[in-house]
């Protein structure tokens, strides 16, 4: 653990954390653009999310008279918790002290912390939409969380570690191994990511149709910098899941040393991976329709089944004795 006290890895971790902040709106813009192209629209510029955030930060925040102090604190907590969760996921280099500070269970816990405050903020004003959004969000996440952890456990049992950096190292060391468990875990994690980041078919990030919203319903009352923080946190979460899927299942290309060339390659490769994942997401969002809310549990049950099969597959097929 001593190397953690040295300076360079921490610097690298800080750079990666900032990179998450910087990348998040770009990915959102790219996703919107691809979707627009798929729908035969021109779509906004790639940089539009940055402009939106900048604009919101410059605006005065308006808070309902019925709001409690928690309402104003929540955006900061949500943002910081999501950001820290993201900072634990290796992005361009494996060698992260933050991954030691918080392993993947802590990552799930930090996301849960953010969600807890997001839901509370939704309920604070006392509008019906806020309560509805909070109730739905918590249910979706309650069903998604066991699937996610079970998928993660499958990986952890293969790598004998819950530490993301060790998992990626183990994956890289083993080379190309076809594991049935990884296939299922990947499927489960993709479904969980879709549900947790509020994408179609579970939630529609673009909707303001009152009865179909989940995430939007909770942040309905926010404006100005508070809204900006909430939006930014949501974008970071999307990048986080993208980086998690890309780097845990397809870690090739990530920098294993701190040499500048390795880091440059790592940055380029992860950018390409994320952009490719975003294209896949855009296609699936264009093809699929949003589900009725009470169909979403079926989707998450599928995720759970996949995770379970991944686990059983790991035990039955992969561990010889």
């Amino acid at each position: 653990m001593d190397y953690l006290l040295t300076f360079l890895p921490w610097l690298l971790a800080a750079v990666q954390a900032l990179l998450y902040l910087a990348l998040a709106p770009l990915l959102a813009g790219w996703l919107r653009r691809i979707k627009a192209r798929l729908q035969n629209r021109r779509g906004p510029s790639l940089w539009q999310p940055y402009r939106d955030l900048y604009k919101l930060f410059g605006k005065e925040a308006r808070v309902a008279t019925t709001a409690s102090p928690l309402f104003r604190a929540a955006p900061y907590i949500v943002f910081v918790a999501t950001w820290l969760a993201a900072a634990t996921v290796p992005l361009i280099a494996v060698d992260l002290p933050t991954a030691m500070v918080a392993d993947i269970i802590v990552l799930a816990g930090l996301l849960a912390l953010a969600r807890f405050f997001l839901a509370l903020a939704g309920m604070d004003i006392g509008t019906a939409f806020g309560g509805m959004g909070a109730s739905r969000e918590m249910l979706v996440s309650a069903l998604a969380e066991p699937a996610m952890l079970m998928a993660v456990f499958t990986l952890a049992m293969t790598a004998h570690s819950t530490n993301l950096a060790s998992m990626i190292d183990a994956q890289l060391a083993a080379g190309l191994v076809l594991r049935p468990s990884f296939l299922f875990a990947l499927g489960a994690l993709v479904l969980v990511a879709i549900a947790e980041t509020g994408r179609i078919p579970v939630d529609n990030p673009a909707t303001h149709l009152e009865l179909t919203m989940i995430h939007e319903a909770m942040i309905l009352e926010y404006s100005g910098r508070h809204l900006a923080l909430m939006e930014w946190a949501a974008q970071i979460k999307l990048v986080l899941y993208g980086a998690l899927i890309a780097n845990v299942f397809f870690p090739w290309g990530i920098a294993q040393s701190t040499a500048p060339t390795a880091l440059a390659t790592g940055a380029l490769v992860i950018l390409l991976k994320l952009l490719a994942l975003a294209v896949a997401l855009a296609i699936s969002e264009t093809v699929l329709a949003k589900m009725r809310f009470f169909r979403a549990p079926a989707l998450l049950n599928l995720a759970l089944l996949l995770a379970l099969l991944g686990l059983l597959g790991h035990v039955i097929l992969e561990v010889g004795s």
Partner: peptide, 28 residues
């Protein structure tokens, strides 16, 4: 691990439960 997943489900439902308690009693 299946038990662990049950534990995860329990934890997530507990979060749901206490969002409900706090949101209904102290907020709004």
């Amino acid at each position: 691990p299946i038990v662990a997943a049950t534990l995860a489900l329990t934890g997530a439902l507990a979060a749901l439960c206490f969002v409900k308690v706090y949101g209904i009693a102290f907020l709004g």
